[in-house]
Amino acid sequence: MLKDITLGQYFPGDTIIHKLDPRTKLILVIVFIVALFLAVDWISYAFMFVVTALCVKVSTIKLKSILKGLKPLIFIIVFTGILNLFYTQGGTVLFDWWIFTISTAGIKRAFLMIVRIMLLITGTFLLTYTTSPIALTDGLEMLLNPLKKIKVPVHEMSMIMSMALRFIPTLIEETDKIMSAQKARGADFSTGKITERAKALLPLLVPLFVSSFRRADELAVAMESRCYHGGEGRTRMNALHMARRDYLAFLAGAIVLGGMIAMNIYGI
């Protein structure tokens, strides 16, 4: 059943990583990505691996969940590996046939690239695993706030995001209901040619659209009734505020980034 799909990637928890301000986490993920791309050789990669492993350990997210998240991306990871394997020249040639040449340099580079992608994915997953979608949206809104000056509708965009998150379960439930109702009238969603199947979706999509518009209409009236008038003059019950741990996290981020720049310069 559609209802069984778990929504979002958020694993609630009580660790320091969970408690960090979402803005801190968003910025640190960017720092992390930059640092990762500064890595050149064994030592710097090993350093980043240790940093990532430490964060995962502190967050108490299970290794299994991270591996599960990597699974759908396995193709990209393998593809990058193969590409690097064959396109990197240098070192001793181990294998040579037609246009395919594998060298020791190729193996090393393929391995490091795979590590880089896996660390990159793990780092960003850590953000979504430890931050609720709403906190993420709030954090993004506040980080992007300066863009309001150049007329970017930051508040509206974040409102749309959080509304969408709010209505996903409702719409899934609704889809389930309409599907059952049409099946009860003999509709068949699972067999037939592609064109037939696409046509069979019409009885599902039309009512879903109609009801979504109705919902949107009612929701707008309900929001207005509760004094919604855009982002102006709005306050927040749980206003985001930076705590001591956030500053400590920034400090740690700066040290990692500094270290990586130094290693990059020395090429290790």
Binding site: S132, P133, S162, E218, L219, C227, R236
Partner: peptide, 28 residues
């Protein structure tokens, strides 16, 4: 209103209840 699903705006109960006072600019 009639349909409870179409008047709840937030993902968490207390955030939803906070919606109106937030719109009114009440102190946190």
């Amino acid at each position: 209103f009639q349909n409870p699903d179409n008047q709840i705006v937030a993902n968490v109960v207390e955030d939803d209840v906070a919606f109106a006072p937030e719109n009114l600019g009440v102190e946190p």
